[in-house]
Write a protein that binds this DNA or RNA. Structure first.
Lengths: 231, 231
DNA sequence: TCAACCGTTTGACATTAATCAATTGAAGCG
DNA sequence: CGCTTCAATTGATTAATGTCAAACGGTTGA
């Protein structure tokens, strides 16, 4: 892999603390590839030969069953995905496709497992990352099971607001994908936006404006145990 | 902790491969406690001081939001729970209560983290367990987002059938808890059982009989990427 | 510029699931 | 044994969400 990408990967929590020699060993078998928009990177059920790192662009993780498809997560730079499958050497549970032109690093899974055993800092970083992923999915499940679609949308907007600090939110994805991520149909999302207008939410294209955060929070009732992205 | 319980814990995947001296060190600060039925072990939001191991009995993991409660998982012997919170030293995302009289081992979280750093086998076991937990929750999310409540129930019954090998399934929990776990109301579960009778499912109390597995499978369309408990 | 395309929105309607209220049924206890 | 209690069931109703079809609107490319 070209040295130029090492810094990006090295800056990830997952790789920042490990021994330089082990990092170099990991990079030796790895390579970076550029993908156009809407390219299938992996299909669920396949075996997990590579740990993937999104260097630029973005990737959609999704799953299918019975001719339906649902969006599970969006991966943005610089993050890894399918770490669990890599660790367990088990089939992917989710498919992945690029949402836009993306640069992806591919690190052989067996190298990851091998270095894990000899580098304690790397091991600790991996376990931290996995624990983080686990907690994210648990929060997602709570969101799905305890909230209505209107409440899910309201809290999604508030999370985006907390992330960017701006009261104008750019969805930065198709509304149909947001709908799928939130577990509803595009039609329903459209109506949900309308349903939030009494709480000061206005829509213009992919720009969503939160008129008054307190009003929206009073409806959405965000919880640190569901909506806090850090812990 | 009394030596008598060591064997149970040692036999867990999580502890079976580690150095004996490290295992002893872990046990030194640990203790075992007996709890009656329906005792709150932990509340979501609290800090995670102990890794818990269910030695006997069973434990319900559940979450609350806005005066609602939903059952997330049932932990049976011999398994750990809240590993992710222990690892990350972050607040619990789920509450836990005993479903019946239970014996629980409590291992100080800081000891777990300390031994993790010096015992590669333990580290590998932890990361495997976490990856397993992660994949279980992902499957759960797919189940929730891609299936109707009738389909979820049908697949749940087939999973139990695969686990026990018997075509008569004992629910071994209140139906209201099963309903909550499957993301529906008790009333709806009752009707869902009725809705499965055309596919050979008959109910008598907590005993569910699958008349013909193929017929039920034809309806449920189980998938290894959602319903396979092993991988 | 205009036509074609595709995501979004809207309305009407169907389906699914939740709620409320009442009843049944089984377990525990005096 | 009969009373109490609570989970489970049933029926009627309402609410939430999905489906289908049509219209709208922005983008692309001839």
């Amino acid at each position: 892999m070209p040295e130029s990408h090492h810094a990006d990967i090295r800056s990830l929590d997952l790789f920042s603390e490990m021994e330089e020699s082990n990092f170099k060993a990991l990079m030796r078998g790895s390579y970076v590839q550029n993908f156009p928009q809407r390219i299938e990177l992996i299909m669920e059920g396949e075996s997990s030969d590579f740990l993937h790192v999104v260097l630029s662009g973005s990737v959609d993780l999704y799953s299918c069953w019975n001719d339906q498809e649902t969006s599970m997560a969006t991966i943005r730079p610089v993050s890894t995905f399918i770490l669990a499958a890599t660790i367990k050497d088990a089939p992917y549970l989710m498919s992945a496709r690029t949402l836009e032109k993306s640069r992806i690093a591919l690190i052989p899974s067996q190298d990851v497992r091998a270095i894990f055993d000899i580098d304690a800092a790397f091991a600790r970083a991996i376990v931290n990352e996995l624990a983080q992923c686990y907690r994210t999915v648990v929060k997602n499940t709570k969101d799905l099971k305890l909230r209505s679609s209107l409440e899910r949308l309201a809290n999604y907007l508030l999370r985006q607001h907390n992330k960017t600090g701006s009261s104008v939110i750019d969805l930065s994805m198709e509304k149909r994908r947001l709908a799928s991520f939130l577990g509803m149909t595009p039609e329903n999302l459209s109506r949900a936006f309308k349903g939030l207008s009494p709480f000061g939410v206005t829509v213009s294209g992919s720009q969503i404006k939160i008129g008054d955060v307190e009003t929206l929070e009073a409806f959405a009732k965000p919880s640190v145990l569901i909506d806090n992205m850090q812990s």
